[in-house]
């Protein structure tokens, strides 16, 4: 009867059976709300983001917040040790989380974290990549598509310029980075499905 919400932003992956699903969700919500607010603050700091209509800002954040968080919290996934560190500071093995029914999503998250970590981005490169991730989010519901596309183009140019100026001998890094964008979209869909499944049938 224990309820499982094995997201590393949760304080603990397993809640006691005595707690109602609503209580478990509310507790989890309190854990992820500060992280979501930080993504919004990050978005506001992206040059040009606040010039978009408020509607389009919300649309990009709705589809991009998890993707930004996935990049930001990649370091919680240790591909070498096959562990995930939760907000309570405790590390859980992939095997134990798999046993809780989190198999394929976690496998995909480990795969993503490993690929991104392998690229060895500097903090400012990572921040610019997160900006590209956010502005490259699903366009459904966007009204001023041209403005979003222009902002995306500017950010991609800035990221390419930063990376190629630092690593003039490595022409593969930038395209490898862009290849992570579809991975993130797939992860986003999978993650949403998992959370919705909990909301419907914990």
């Amino acid at each position: 009867g224990a309820k499982v919400l094995a997201c590393p932003l949760n304080s603990c992956p397993v809640a006691p059976a005595s707690r109602s699903s609503q209580e478990v969700w509310e507790s989890f919500s309190q854990c992820f709300t500060p992280a979501v607010k930080e993504v919004v603050e990050f978005a506001k700091s992206i040059p040009g983001f606040q010039s978009l209509s408020q509607h389009d800002q919300v649309m990009l954040l709705k589809s991009g917040t998890f993707q930004v968080l996935m990049v930001r919290f990649c370091s919680l996934f240790d591909p070498k040790e096959r562990t995930v560190t939760f907000l309570n500071g405790q590390s859980y093995s992939l095997a134990s989380l798999r046993a809780l029914g989190m198999g394929s999503l976690l496998d995909a998250m480990f795969d993503f974290s490993e690929k991104l970590g392998y690229l060895g981005l500097e903090p400012d490169e990572m921040a610019l990549f997160m900006a590209v991730v956010l502005v490259s989010a699903d366009r459904s519901g966007i009204v001023e598509v041209g403005a979003v596309e222009q902002l995306q183009e500017n950010l991609i140019k800035a990221l390419r310029s930063l990376i190629t100026s630092r690593r003039p001998d490595d022409s593969t890094l930038f395209p490898k980075l862009l290849l992570r964008l579809p991975d993130l979209r797939t992860l986003n869909n999978h993650h949403s499905d998992k959370l919705l499944a909990f909301r419907i049938d914990p």
Partner: peptide, 27 residues
Amino acid sequence: FSDPASNLGLEDIIRKALMGNLEEKPE
């Protein structure tokens, strides 16, 4: 459940966080 962000409460958090500093703009 065609809009997961709304159903998970994400949209509400995002709107409130944005409204902290944003003035309402005409759509």
